[in-house]
Design a protein around this nucleic acid. Sequence first.
DNA 1: CGAGATATCAACCAAAAGAATGATAAAAAA
DNA 2: TTTTTTATCATTCTTTTGGTTGATATCTCG
Lengths: 237, 237
Amino acid sequence: MSSIDSSSFPSQFQQESLKLINGFISIKSAAFYLIDPNMSHKGIVTHNMAKEDDKLYQSRYMHMDPLNPNLFENSSETVVHMDSIMPAQFIEQSVYYQDFLKPLNYRYATDIFFRSEGKIIAVITLLREKTQGIFTEEELSLLRKQQPFLEYALNAVYLSKRITERKSIGERYQLSSRELDVLELVISGANNKIIAKELMLGLATIKTHLQHIYQKVGVVSRTELLSRVIDDLKAVG
Amino acid sequence: MSSIDSSSFPSQFQQESLKLINGFISIKSAAFYLIDPNMSHKGIVTHNMAKEDDKLYQSRYMHMDPLNPNLFENSSETVVHMDSIMPAQFIEQSVYYQDFLKPLNYRYATDIFFRSEGKIIAVITLLREKTQGIFTEEELSLLRKQQPFLEYALNAVYLSKRITERKSIGERYQLSSRELDVLELVISGANNKIIAKELMLGLATIKTHLQHIYQKVGVVSRTELLSRVIDDLKAVG
DNA sequence: CGAGATATCAACCAAAAGAATGATAAAAAA
DNA sequence: TTTTTTATCATTCTTTTGGTTGATATCTCG
């Protein structure tokens, strides 16, 4: 129970997240979507919701969803309630509501967005039927308090899983070819004097290159730089 | 000056957890302890609390703490409030309160326990002063709802990495447990001063431990040490 | 019990790394 | 063509790390 099967890891994370939220606030259904770079849904975990409903949503109604993540890509909102961004009459008259939500007996929708490096990488959708009432400010506030930790944990899990599209440090931080030469030797354990000799450069030059590498990578020391390399390797392994 | 990169720091999980809890209930101070098999404190992250206070607790008062994890090892409690398990007069007359809590201006204490395979592996201690009032049932209930997810995330995100890493490198080079503590922080990118602060040791002690690590691993510098760790990770992956 | 390992700290010195500034020249990009 | 990036190096100063020696206390294993 406590140890983790890495194969089921991401979805278990999603399940646990939904369980957590379900413990806090009353919902009819919920879904936790992982989003890949081209914004098609992946790794969907649902709570009290038929998979077909999600399929329908993606194929026919996603583009008209007022909570579509695309619309919030450039905002910093973490929790968005449909009834907070548009009047009730407007919602109830919309095609999206009449054709999609209403037939499934949903009335209130709230999305929680999770970002990584500015981009939305995951969304939790919470759905309520009419009788459960609107999402209150207190409930939304609770969700907003919860979001940062979920986002942190998600990144710690999800990002380390995105091995395929992972780029090496050099590409990721746009190091110049000479800087890469230096980095390679640093990783091999060489000190500056040895690097200088190896590349037939002055000691000062190596130091300058290193300063630039630190800047680009966003670290302040050789130790942190190597630490970063180790993290990248961990993400692969 | 040289601040460490918080994104790779091992204690970030603990920091985020405390931030989360601090977001929805009022506390004066908090601490997140990781506990190793022999129940000595490790990896302490505090919120609004001096490290010395924790040191004092561990050396002098831990054994008389009514919320001592040892006392709950065989229970399944997740959230325990001191005032829920004993009468107020009893607490206020106890040596533990008079000599430890009171001088530091604490009155109310609640512990959250996290288990792995039945054993308590981590504890969050929440402390309030008298004027903040007792922890209410609603607050305790909120914490009990939060606990399972934190426990899951702790086991999944945080500890799994930490433990495997510790074992592999530690066993290969026969490092002592303290040397591993230092190595772990070196790998995280910390410099000696920060390691000293984190482990609450003198700078000289860290240097000595490092010398021993260098000897055992067969390197002559921090850079080479990290290089070796990178190689080892590559070999595994 | 005693030897060796472990954990802690001090003081000192040397070497390495890092920070800041400035300079020159070629290459690339705008 | 002008500007920006890259590559090269120098100087100076501060901080960090490494090397050594030695001290003390605890713990563990034979």
